[in-house]
Write a protein that binds this DNA or RNA. Structure first.
Lengths: 111, 111
DNA sequence: TATGTATGCATAAGAAACTTATGTATATTT
DNA sequence: AAATATACATAAGTTTCTTATGCATACATA
Protein backbone atom coordinates (compact mmCIF):
# COMPACT_ATOMS: atom_id res chain seq x y z
CA UNK A 1 0.00 0.00 0.00
CA UNK A 2 1.32 3.34 -0.95
CA UNK A 3 -0.30 6.76 -1.11
CA UNK A 4 0.89 8.55 2.01
CA UNK A 5 -0.27 5.66 4.11
CA UNK A 6 1.18 2.28 4.75
CA UNK A 7 -1.10 -0.28 6.12
CA UNK A 8 -1.53 -1.15 9.66
CA UNK A 9 0.44 -4.35 9.93
CA UNK A 10 -1.81 -7.25 9.08
CA UNK A 11 -4.57 -5.23 7.52
CA UNK A 12 -3.48 -6.10 4.00
CA UNK A 13 -4.21 -9.77 4.67
CA UNK A 14 -7.52 -8.81 6.25
CA UNK A 15 -8.50 -6.85 3.15
CA UNK A 16 -7.63 -9.79 0.94
CA UNK A 17 -9.77 -12.09 3.10
CA UNK A 18 -12.66 -9.69 2.95
CA UNK A 19 -12.48 -9.26 -0.82
CA UNK A 20 -12.36 -13.02 -1.35
CA UNK A 21 -15.13 -13.61 1.14
CA UNK A 22 -17.40 -11.20 -0.71
CA UNK A 23 -16.45 -12.15 -4.25
CA UNK A 24 -15.88 -15.89 -4.15
CA UNK A 25 -12.98 -15.63 -6.58
CA UNK A 26 -10.68 -12.79 -7.56
CA UNK A 27 -7.29 -12.39 -9.18
CA UNK A 28 -4.53 -10.13 -7.97
CA UNK A 29 -4.74 -7.34 -10.46
CA UNK A 30 -8.47 -7.22 -9.96
CA UNK A 31 -7.94 -6.64 -6.24
CA UNK A 32 -5.72 -3.65 -6.88
CA UNK A 33 -8.38 -2.11 -9.09
CA UNK A 34 -11.17 -2.90 -6.65
CA UNK A 35 -9.38 -1.20 -3.78
CA UNK A 36 -8.67 1.80 -5.95
CA UNK A 37 -12.33 1.97 -6.86
CA UNK A 38 -13.74 1.54 -3.36
CA UNK A 39 -11.38 4.08 -1.82
CA UNK A 40 -11.69 6.48 -4.75
CA UNK A 41 -7.98 6.29 -5.42
CA UNK A 42 -6.98 7.14 -1.88
CA UNK A 43 -5.46 3.77 -1.09
CA UNK A 44 -3.10 2.30 -3.65
CA UNK A 45 -2.63 -1.43 -3.21
CA UNK A 46 0.70 -1.97 -4.94
CA UNK A 47 1.49 -5.21 -6.72
CA UNK A 48 4.82 -5.37 -4.94
CA UNK A 49 2.94 -5.64 -1.67
CA UNK A 50 0.02 -7.71 -2.90
CA UNK A 51 1.63 -10.64 -4.72
CA UNK A 52 4.02 -11.64 -1.94
CA UNK A 53 1.12 -11.36 0.50
CA UNK A 54 -1.03 -13.65 -1.66
CA UNK A 55 1.79 -16.20 -1.91
CA UNK A 56 2.22 -16.24 1.83
CA UNK A 57 -1.48 -16.63 2.53
CA UNK A 58 -1.62 -19.52 0.08
CA UNK A 59 1.45 -21.14 1.64
CA UNK A 60 -0.35 -20.88 4.99
CA UNK A 61 -3.45 -22.57 3.58
CA UNK A 62 -5.70 -19.55 4.12
CA UNK A 63 -6.41 -19.06 0.42
CA UNK A 64 -6.01 -21.27 -2.63
CA UNK A 65 -5.43 -20.46 -6.28
CA UNK A 66 -6.52 -21.84 -9.61
CA UNK A 67 -5.31 -20.83 -13.04
CA UNK A 68 -7.72 -19.81 -15.76
CA UNK A 69 -6.97 -19.04 -19.34
CA UNK A 70 -8.74 -15.90 -20.51
CA UNK A 71 -8.23 -15.42 -24.23
CA UNK A 72 -4.50 -15.77 -24.55
CA UNK A 73 -3.78 -14.52 -21.05
CA UNK A 74 -3.40 -16.28 -17.77
CA UNK A 75 -5.22 -15.39 -14.64
CA UNK A 76 -4.54 -16.74 -11.18
CA UNK A 77 -7.78 -16.76 -9.29
CA UNK A 78 -7.76 -16.91 -5.53
CA UNK A 79 -10.39 -18.34 -3.22
CA UNK A 80 -10.66 -18.20 0.54
CA UNK A 81 -10.52 -21.49 2.44
CA UNK A 82 -12.49 -22.52 5.51
CA UNK A 83 -9.42 -21.90 7.62
CA UNK A 84 -9.07 -18.54 5.92
CA UNK A 85 -12.61 -17.57 6.87
CA UNK A 86 -11.93 -18.38 10.49
CA UNK A 87 -8.74 -16.36 10.40
CA UNK A 88 -10.62 -13.49 8.79
CA UNK A 89 -13.00 -13.38 11.73
CA UNK A 90 -10.12 -13.16 14.16
CA UNK A 91 -8.38 -10.45 12.17
CA UNK A 92 -11.52 -8.37 11.81
CA UNK A 93 -12.09 -8.45 15.55
CA UNK A 94 -8.50 -7.45 16.19
CA UNK A 95 -8.70 -4.58 13.75
CA UNK A 96 -11.97 -3.41 15.17
CA UNK A 97 -10.65 -3.24 18.71
CA UNK A 98 -7.42 -1.70 17.49
CA UNK A 99 -9.37 1.07 15.77
CA UNK A 100 -11.43 1.49 18.89
CA UNK A 101 -8.31 1.93 20.99
CA UNK A 102 -6.86 4.40 18.53
CA UNK A 103 -10.05 6.35 18.75
CA UNK A 104 -9.75 6.44 22.53
CA UNK A 105 -6.19 7.65 22.28
CA UNK A 106 -6.70 10.20 19.54
CA UNK A 107 -10.31 11.22 20.02
CA UNK A 108 -10.90 10.67 16.33
CA UNK A 109 -14.48 10.51 15.26
CA UNK A 110 -15.16 7.98 12.54
CA UNK A 111 -18.30 7.85 10.38
CA UNK B 1 3.70 -1.39 20.15
CA UNK B 2 3.23 -5.01 20.91
CA UNK B 3 0.22 -6.97 22.04
CA UNK B 4 -1.01 -8.69 18.92
CA UNK B 5 -1.05 -5.42 17.05
CA UNK B 6 1.67 -3.37 15.53
CA UNK B 7 0.85 0.17 14.79
CA UNK B 8 -0.26 1.54 11.55
CA UNK B 9 2.85 3.25 10.29
CA UNK B 10 3.01 6.76 11.62
CA UNK B 11 0.41 6.33 14.31
CA UNK B 12 3.01 6.04 17.05
CA UNK B 13 4.21 9.56 16.29
CA UNK B 14 0.63 10.75 16.16
CA UNK B 15 -0.07 9.30 19.59
CA UNK B 16 3.00 11.01 21.00
CA UNK B 17 1.86 14.32 19.54
CA UNK B 18 -1.59 13.90 20.99
CA UNK B 19 -0.32 13.00 24.45
CA UNK B 20 2.02 16.00 24.50
CA UNK B 21 -0.65 18.29 23.16
CA UNK B 22 -3.01 17.31 25.94
CA UNK B 23 -0.50 17.16 28.77
CA UNK B 24 1.96 19.96 28.06
CA UNK B 25 4.87 17.88 29.31
CA UNK B 26 5.41 14.14 29.67
CA UNK B 27 8.34 11.79 29.97
CA UNK B 28 8.76 8.55 28.07
CA UNK B 29 7.99 6.05 30.74
CA UNK B 30 4.91 8.05 31.66
CA UNK B 31 3.65 7.71 28.10
CA UNK B 32 3.94 3.93 28.20
CA UNK B 33 1.88 3.85 31.39
CA UNK B 34 -0.67 6.33 30.07
CA UNK B 35 -1.29 4.28 26.94
CA UNK B 36 -1.60 1.13 29.00
CA UNK B 37 -4.13 2.88 31.22
CA UNK B 38 -6.23 4.41 28.45
CA UNK B 39 -6.38 1.19 26.43
CA UNK B 40 -6.87 -0.96 29.52
CA UNK B 41 -3.71 -2.91 28.76
CA UNK B 42 -4.72 -3.73 25.22
CA UNK B 43 -2.01 -1.67 23.57
CA UNK B 44 1.50 -2.03 24.90
CA UNK B 45 3.73 0.84 23.92
CA UNK B 46 7.17 -0.72 24.25
CA UNK B 47 10.18 1.33 25.27
CA UNK B 48 12.14 -0.15 22.38
CA UNK B 49 9.69 1.50 20.00
CA UNK B 50 9.06 4.67 21.97
CA UNK B 51 12.51 6.01 22.74
CA UNK B 52 13.86 5.87 19.19
CA UNK B 53 10.63 7.50 18.01
CA UNK B 54 11.03 10.30 20.56
CA UNK B 55 14.62 10.86 19.49
CA UNK B 56 13.63 11.09 15.85
CA UNK B 57 10.80 13.53 16.52
CA UNK B 58 13.16 15.72 18.52
CA UNK B 59 15.78 15.58 15.77
CA UNK B 60 13.07 16.73 13.37
CA UNK B 61 12.16 19.65 15.63
CA UNK B 62 8.63 18.43 16.28
CA UNK B 63 9.16 17.98 20.02
CA UNK B 64 11.78 19.25 22.47
CA UNK B 65 13.09 17.82 25.72
CA UNK B 66 14.23 19.16 29.06
CA UNK B 67 15.83 17.26 31.90
CA UNK B 68 14.46 17.41 35.43
CA UNK B 69 15.90 15.93 38.56
CA UNK B 70 13.28 14.15 40.60
CA UNK B 71 14.68 13.01 43.93
CA UNK B 72 17.81 11.19 42.85
CA UNK B 73 16.45 10.21 39.47
CA UNK B 74 16.54 11.92 36.12
CA UNK B 75 13.54 12.50 33.95
CA UNK B 76 13.51 13.66 30.35
CA UNK B 77 10.39 15.66 29.78
CA UNK B 78 9.13 16.23 26.27
CA UNK B 79 7.09 19.13 24.93
CA UNK B 80 5.45 19.59 21.57
CA UNK B 81 6.66 22.49 19.39
CA UNK B 82 4.59 24.76 17.16
CA UNK B 83 5.82 22.81 14.16
CA UNK B 84 4.86 19.64 15.96
CA UNK B 85 1.31 20.86 16.49
CA UNK B 86 0.96 21.61 12.80
CA UNK B 87 2.30 18.18 11.93
CA UNK B 88 -0.10 16.62 14.42
CA UNK B 89 -3.02 18.17 12.58
CA UNK B 90 -1.83 16.70 9.30
CA UNK B 91 -1.28 13.27 10.81
CA UNK B 92 -4.67 13.22 12.51
CA UNK B 93 -6.39 14.04 9.24
CA UNK B 94 -4.47 11.33 7.45
CA UNK B 95 -5.31 8.75 10.11
CA UNK B 96 -8.94 9.74 10.11
CA UNK B 97 -9.32 9.29 6.36
CA UNK B 98 -7.29 6.09 6.48
CA UNK B 99 -9.65 4.67 9.10
CA UNK B 100 -12.58 5.79 7.01
CA UNK B 101 -11.21 3.94 4.00
CA UNK B 102 -10.56 0.83 6.03
CA UNK B 103 -14.13 0.97 7.21
CA UNK B 104 -15.31 1.17 3.61
CA UNK B 105 -13.19 -1.82 2.70
CA UNK B 106 -13.97 -3.96 5.71
CA UNK B 107 -17.44 -2.80 6.70
CA UNK B 108 -16.24 -2.42 10.24
CA UNK B 109 -18.47 -0.42 12.51
CA UNK B 110 -16.64 1.76 14.99
CA UNK B 111 -18.11 3.38 18.07
C1' DT C 1 19.20 -8.68 53.76
C1' DA C 2 18.89 -10.06 49.39
C1' DT C 3 15.81 -10.50 45.69
C1' DG C 4 12.47 -9.18 42.80
C1' DT C 5 9.61 -5.59 40.82
C1' DA C 6 8.89 -0.84 39.46
C1' DT C 7 10.77 3.33 37.64
C1' DG C 8 13.51 5.55 33.99
C1' DC C 9 16.66 6.01 30.42
C1' DA C 10 18.94 3.90 26.20
C1' DT C 11 20.71 0.96 22.22
C1' DA C 12 21.10 -2.97 19.10
C1' DA C 13 20.02 -7.27 16.55
C1' DG C 14 16.71 -9.31 14.03
C1' DA C 15 12.07 -9.77 11.88
C1' DA C 16 8.21 -8.15 9.26
C1' DA C 17 5.98 -5.40 5.99
C1' DC C 18 6.18 -2.16 2.85
C1' DT C 19 7.97 0.93 -1.33
C1' DT C 20 10.13 1.32 -5.43
C1' DA C 21 12.17 -0.61 -9.28
C1' DT C 22 12.43 -3.91 -12.57
C1' DG C 23 11.19 -7.77 -15.63
C1' DT C 24 8.21 -10.49 -18.87
C1' DA C 25 4.25 -10.87 -21.85
C1' DT C 26 -0.27 -9.95 -24.08
C1' DA C 27 -4.15 -6.67 -25.24
C1' DT C 28 -5.98 -2.45 -26.29
C1' DT C 29 -6.10 2.22 -27.40
C1' DT C 30 -4.37 6.35 -29.71
C1' DA D 1 3.86 2.51 -34.08
C1' DA D 2 3.79 3.73 -29.51
C1' DA D 3 1.80 4.20 -25.30
C1' DT D 4 -1.18 2.48 -21.91
C1' DA D 5 -3.66 -1.25 -19.61
C1' DT D 6 -3.77 -5.90 -18.15
C1' DA D 7 -1.47 -9.65 -15.51
C1' DC D 8 1.92 -12.02 -13.33
C1' DA D 9 6.39 -11.98 -10.50
C1' DT D 10 10.77 -10.93 -7.83
C1' DA D 11 14.32 -8.29 -5.50
C1' DA D 12 16.85 -4.47 -3.26
C1' DG D 13 16.40 -1.26 0.08
C1' DT D 14 13.84 1.25 3.82
C1' DT D 15 11.08 1.76 7.74
C1' DT D 16 9.20 0.28 11.81
C1' DC D 17 8.48 -2.73 14.97
C1' DT D 18 9.75 -6.68 18.58
C1' DT D 19 12.71 -8.63 21.61
C1' DA D 20 16.75 -8.56 24.17
C1' DT D 21 19.95 -6.33 26.76
C1' DG D 22 22.19 -2.86 29.66
C1' DC D 23 22.64 0.65 33.35
C1' DA D 24 20.90 2.83 37.54
C1' DT D 25 17.78 4.10 41.46
C1' DA D 26 13.67 3.10 44.49
C1' DC D 27 10.70 0.26 46.84
C1' DA D 28 8.58 -3.86 48.52
C1' DT D 29 8.82 -8.46 50.21
C1' DA D 30 10.43 -12.89 51.55
Amino acid sequence: MASNSSFYKGSLATIIFKLLDENDKMYGYEMTQKVKLITEGQLNLTEGALYPALHKLEADGLIISSMENIGNRMRKYYHITRTGKKEMGVRLNELQSFFQQMQNLLSIKIA
